[in-house]
Simulated scan of single mutants.
Amino acid sequence: MADTRTGGGAPTVLRMVLGKRLQHLRERAGVTYEQAARALDVTHATVRRMEKAEVGLKVPYVEKLLRTYGVGEPDEIEGFVSLAREANQPGWWHRYRDVLPEWFSVFVSLESESDVIRAYEPHYVPGLLQTESYARAVLRAGMPHAPEGEIKRGVALRMERQAVLFRDENPPMLWAVIDETVLRRNIGGAEVMREQVDELIKATERSNVRLQIMPYSAGPHPAMYGPFHLFRFPLEELPDVVCAESLVGAVYFDQRDDVSGFLEALDRMCAQAVPLARTRAVLSALRKEI
């Protein structure tokens, strides 16, 4: 999956699923990219981008491709087209497009539809577990010249993202490893940090949150290069997707070999980090030091 710092609208997970299905239908029919492109009178790159969910699924294109791939049943075509229309609808996060970079729109889309979210965070508390005060301090540090209204909008987006952990139907499992540095870096002052650690202690009581701490004493580990998230979905068409962040954007990976490397790093880190059963005790001890 390509770097998404630039490009078209952020894909919804449903659009990704439909792109995978179009690819499967094309390959099953023995149709090449060039042949599919001729049927639409577009370039083969456009067909590739549709399959990779890098562009919206235009309904006339979808209908023509389905027929080109031998899908002739009206009900099957209509069902696919209805899903394509739904996939083209903006997600709830579209309301925050004024403060939401394109690359991070992809992240929120994946986060919203995940079944499992695994993460390593060496700098900050994961966004899904941040308090409002901590989130405000983090955003202000990252955008020192932003107007206060922009910071407020960014905090509101972060708080609304957290609803995914509390939804009634199939909330995702969040399993995060955070570096000890995260808990010792003074962000927003002592009061903000105490409130944040208290929130982390509460989070460990949730059945869908697993939190581990990577202590200084553990020494080097496989992911010292920076933060990343791995998203897993309940839909078999979708592979795991990894987001590796940088200062100005992110790169998304969905190729098996790439994702396997991140998954192995997470497993090794979980073995090195403080065991889950001791997380609360470590947090409580650090809380007394603040």
Score class of each variant (00 low, 15 high):
37 A>R: 01
171 P>T: 08
218 A>C: 03
63 E>R: 11
79 G>Y: 06
107 F>K: 03
90 P>S: 12
32 T>R: 01
126 P>I: 07
45 A>L: 15
210 R>V: 09
170 N>G: 08
179 D>H: 03
5 R>L: 09
238 L>D: 04
50 M>A: 09
209 V>Q: 07
127 G>I: 03
155 V>S: 08
44 H>D: 12
168 D>Y: 04
273 A>E: 06
242 V>K: 09
252 Y>P: 02
46 T>K: 15
60 P>R: 06
137 A>Y: 02
75 D>Q: 12
6 T>C: 06
275 P>D: 10
226 G>K: 10
12 T>G: 08
95 R>A: 15
172 P>F: 03
135 A>W: 02
189 G>W: 08
32 T>C: 10
35 Q>R: 13
168 D>P: 07
154 G>N: 04
271 A>Q: 04
40 L>E: 10
2 A>T: 11
42 V>W: 03
182 V>G: 05
232 R>F: 00
19 G>N: 12
270 C>W: 00
21 R>K: 15
27 E>N: 09
213 I>R: 00
8 G>I: 12
146 A>R: 08
138 V>P: 04
122 P>Y: 06
177 V>G: 04
152 K>D: 12
230 L>D: 01
140 R>E: 12
31 V>P: 00
147 P>Q: 04
19 G>C: 14
85 R>A: 02
290 I>K: 05
81 V>T: 03
15 R>W: 05
220 P>S: 09
174 L>Y: 04
50 M>P: 01
176 A>D: 00
19 G>V: 14
223 A>T: 04
61 Y>G: 02
65 L>S: 05
270 C>M: 11
122 P>F: 08
81 V>Q: 01
259 V>L: 11
50 M>L: 15
230 L>Y: 02
281 A>Q: 15
59 V>W: 01
84 A>G: 00
39 A>F: 01
270 C>S: 05
288 K>Q: 15
189 G>Q: 11
110 L>G: 03
66 L>F: 00
290 I>V: 15
94 H>G: 04
269 M>W: 05
218 A>H: 00
180 E>A: 13
178 I>K: 01
122 P>N: 11
269 M>N: 05
206 R>A: 06
243 C>T: 05
91 G>Q: 09
172 P>C: 08
283 L>V: 08
121 E>I: 03
217 S>T: 13
154 G>Q: 05
190 A>T: 14
219 G>A: 10
85 R>L: 10
214 M>T: 01
48 R>L: 14
173 M>I: 11
40 L>I: 14
64 K>N: 03
219 G>Y: 05
262 F>G: 11
208 N>W: 01
248 V>L: 15
187 I>E: 03
206 R>P: 00
148 E>V: 13
153 R>T: 07
281 A>P: 01
197 V>R: 07
16 M>R: 15
231 F>E: 07
124 Y>R: 09
258 D>K: 14
50 M>F: 06
276 L>A: 15
118 R>A: 05
117 I>Q: 04
190 A>V: 15
1 M>N: 08
40 L>T: 10
169 E>H: 09
183 L>M: 12
19 G>S: 14
170 N>K: 12
213 I>V: 15
9 G>F: 06
56 G>T: 05
222 P>F: 06
247 L>H: 05
276 L>D: 06
51 E>M: 13
205 E>L: 10
38 R>E: 13
148 E>A: 14
274 V>R: 10
262 F>K: 13
217 S>E: 15
103 W>D: 08
68 T>R: 11
113 E>K: 09
6 T>P: 00
121 E>R: 03
